[in-house]
Amino acid sequence: MVLTGSVRMSDSGHTRRRVLGAGGALAGLVTLSGCGIFGDDHEPPAGPDPLRPVLDEALALAAAYDRVVLADQTLSARLTPMSQAHRAHAAELARVIGTTLPSAAPTAAGADNTVAGLRTAELAAQKTAAAACKAAPAARAALVGSIAAARASHAEALR
């Protein structure tokens, strides 16, 4: 399990030759995708980018902070840095995904516009980002990991 990227690639290459040699082209494809050796290849994935939910959550969180501050201006100094952090996350994610940011943030249905509600949302969003980090190709792992850690630290700051 403790192999470098290049070693893993060549290992998988052997696997492919063996499987194809056995005449199982389809099985070979399954094996290859199962190994995840395309992880670093930046293949355009079918369907929405796996980081899209992390981006959407960042925008939704930023908007949620704004709503709470709008309702209680005294919270502005405390909450604005976190709202700005979510916008910075969204901008970086959009750059990595290769998309543009929507002008209007999605509003979560039945959003709880309280500090406690923000905290709950941060913890849920941390889980999304942590799962995305685990599944991400190497080139994206650090960014998504930092975003997961940021969400956890926001939840701590809101305690």
């Binding site: 100094a77 840095p81 976190m82 700005q84 952090a85 910075a88 996350h89 970086e92 650090a142 960014l143 990991g145 930092s146 975003i147 850690a149 940021a150 630290s153 926001h154 701590e156 700051a157």
Partner: peptide, 10 residues
Amino acid sequence: TPLTLIFPGR
């Protein structure tokens, strides 16, 4: 303040 970094670890 602020209590958090924008990108912890960066």
